[in-house]
């Protein structure tokens, strides 16, 4: 049988192709719905997402907190913005691990063979992280209140701080989307994430003042995104000049998005 023995399709059928921002958003919402369902079906994910940050609040409030001196005196007020940032930072691993798992199980191939928006799998995944973060952070605020966390600047300032936090979490989800696509299996994605996140969250102002660290570490700690976001939230929630800190935190989050969204989408198109 030769390829030229039969005529090609005489008439190319008109094939409807769905495109546009509404399609991207619609597809992303479908994928996000799927990922949020996972959270309810896989108890491990739910435990990781909720119980662990609560444990951190209790650990630092009642075990380590007494030994840490902070400006302003109240450690629980100092601590909570730090735990918020740590929580969304570690939560972003879910995007990387989830994508790596989908890749290794062939689900990404299935998505890529569908006439759906190209960026929707990543957008849906990071959107699901965002929705989960809204829930987890709400829970953390309540737990914080229960152990003595008090907001001195009013509800609007708190909401502003949380918005800044959620944007940062969303940006990190895109960073880990790229990590997940590059590593392509869940264990490696997890293994790659921790060495990135440990210094970012612990060598920051999240749990202790940067000034208490040795000089060489201060240089890193004072100039990295977790510190920027935590300082901005603290200023908003607890009072103090917030303007330039908020701008710095915004710049970090938007900068990460500008760099990592295109990189992750490009990698998604190529992978396979």
């Amino acid at each position: 049988m030769s390829a030229t023995a039969l005529p090609r399709a005489a008439v190319t059928r008109p094939v409807p192709v769905h495109t546009g921002p509404r399609v991207v958003l619609g597809d992303a919402v479908v994928v996000a719905g799927r990922n949020l369902r996972h959270l309810t079906r896989n108890p491990q994910l739910l435990v990781f997402a909720t119980i662990q940050p609560v444990m951190f609040v209790l650990l630092f409030r009642y075990v380590f907190g007494g030994a840490i001196a902070v400006p302003g005196g109240s450690y629980v007020n100092y601590l909570m913005p730090g735990v918020f940032a740590q929580t969304v930072a570690f939560g972003a691993i879910a995007t990387g691990v989830g994508l790596a798992e989908d890749l290794s199980k062939g689900l990404i191939d299935r998505f890529r063979s569908l006439p759906m928006a190209r960026s929707a799998v990543l957008a849906g995944r990071t959107l699901a992280d965002l929705v989960r973060n809204v829930g987890v952070v709400t829970l953390l605020v309540l737990v914080g209140m229960a152990v003595g966390f008090r907001v001195s600047n009013g509800v609007l300032a708190l909401l502003g701080g949380l918005a800044l936090l959620l944007l940062f979490g969303f940006a990190l989800s895109w960073v880990f989307a790229l990590v997940g696509l590059l590593t392509a299996d869940a264990e490696s994605a997890q293994a790659a994430a921790f060495p990135l996140l440990f210094p970012l969250t612990f060598a920051s102002s999240a749990f202790v003042p940067v000034q208490s660290m040795p000089g060489w570490l201060q240089t890193f700690a004072a100039n990295q995104p977790v510190t920027a976001v935590v300082d901005a939230i603290r200023a908003l929630v607890l009072g103090g000049p917030a303007g330039s800190l908020v701008l710095k935190a915004l710049a970090w989050s938007l900068g990460l998005l500008v760099i990592f969204v295109p990189l992750a989408v490009r990698r998604y198109r190529q992978s396979g």
Partner: peptide, 16 residues
């Protein structure tokens, strides 16, 4: 994208 709307694919590793 037009080709994708004409095909169905089931792979080696039941991608569900």
């Amino acid at each position: 994208q037009a080709a994708r709307s004409l095909i169905g694919l089931a792979g080696q590793y039941a991608a569900v």
